[in-house]
Simulated scan of single mutants.
Amino acid sequence: MGGHVEPSAHRVAMGRAVRDLRTGRGLTVRQVADRIGVSIGTVSAIENGHVATSTERAVELADVLGVRPERLLLGVVEPIRDERWRVASGEGEGAGAEHWRHYEPLDLDPALRGALACFLELGYHGSTMRGVAERAGLSVAGLYHYYASKQQLLVSILDRTMDELSRRTSAAQAEADEPWTRFARLVECQALFHSHRRELGFIGATEMRSLAGPARARIAQVRRQEQTRIDDEVRAACRAEAFATPLPHEAARAVVTMCTAIPQWYRHGGDSTPERVAQWYVDFALDLVQCDPALRPTSALP
C-alpha cells in the first residue's frame, strides 16, 4: 500500500544546512543549481530533505557554500571559511577598497592540497588517485569517501580558482569610476592573483583541456567573462579617447594572455614580489593600449 514516506533525519539535517548556508551567503537557488550543474528543482528537493545526496554532489555543494564536505554531510551549519568569505566578498568588518589586494595562505582541504601538488608535479593525466592520497596523507578509501574521481578533484580546484578570481576582479572593477582606471585595477588584480595564487593559475592555464562535460563549459564561461571585463574597459577607454590603440580587441586579449602566463615563470620567494610584478604589468598593459599619459592612473602600489 502506497503512502507518504517521511524524509530521513539525516537528509533533513543536511537539507537545512544547505539552505541556511545558501541564504547566509546571499545565493539564490538558481545560482547554486547553475554552479553544480543541476536543476533548480533538484536543489529545492535537497534543501527540503526529499532526495538522498551522493557524496560527490555533497562535495560540490560544500565547495560552493564554503564549508568542508564532512561538515555538510553531517548537517553542520557553521561555515569554516565564513569570515574569509565575507571579506573576499566585500562584506563585514575589514572589507573595503583594498580587500582584493590582500591574500591569506591558500585554504584547501587535504585532498585538494594533495591533488594540487600531484597535478603540478605530474600533470592531470600523469596523476593517480593513489598518488593524490599519498600526498594528502589519506588512505585511498578515505580519499574516495569525499571525492569520487580525479576529474572531480580537478573540477573542484578550478571552481575554487575561478570563484576567487571573479570575486576579486569584481571588487577591483567596482573601485574606480573611469574605464581607464578600471582597466588598470583589473590588470593589477589579474597580476596579483596569478602570482600570489601561482599554483592555481598554473593549473587553470594548463589543465582546462582535461575537463570534460558540463564542468568544462561552465568553467570556460567564467573564464570568458573575465576576458570580457577587460575587453569592455578597453573599448570604453578607446571611445573616450583615453586609449589610442587601433586594435582594442587584440590588445585586450594580449593583456589577459600576458597576465595568465605569469605562473609559468613566477616563483614564490624570488627576486620580485607579487606587488612589484603587478606594478610592472599595469605599466606594460597601459603602454600596450597606448594610454594617454595625462590619464594614466596613479598606482596605489609602493
Rank of each mutant, 00 (worst) to 15 (best):
R235S: 07
M258K: 02
R218S: 14
A294D: 14
T257M: 10
S299N: 01
I219G: 03
I203A: 06
Q221E: 15
Q225L: 09
P246H: 05
V222A: 13
I262M: 05
W265Q: 09
F243M: 09
W265G: 12
E226Q: 15
A215R: 05
R197I: 10
P302V: 07
E226V: 11
Q221S: 15
F202S: 12
W280G: 03
R198T: 14
G270D: 03
P297V: 01
F202C: 07
L211A: 11
D231E: 12
Y266M: 07
C259F: 00
C238W: 03
T298Q: 13
A220K: 09
A300D: 13
V277T: 03
P246L: 03
R229F: 06
L286K: 04
V256Q: 04
R235N: 08
E275Q: 12
R229W: 11
L247E: 15
S210C: 14
D232G: 01
V234F: 06
R296G: 02
P263E: 11
E241K: 15
C291P: 07
E207M: 06
T298W: 00
E233N: 02
C238K: 08
L200C: 07
R253M: 11
A294Q: 13
I262A: 01
A217G: 12
A236L: 13
A244N: 03
V289L: 07
I262W: 09
R296L: 02
L288D: 06
L286M: 12
A240K: 07
H249I: 06
G270L: 04
V222H: 07
C259L: 14
R267F: 00
Q279C: 03
L211P: 11
G213R: 12
V256N: 00
R224W: 08
H268A: 15
W265D: 03
A244P: 01
A215I: 08
D287V: 02
I262Y: 06
I262R: 02
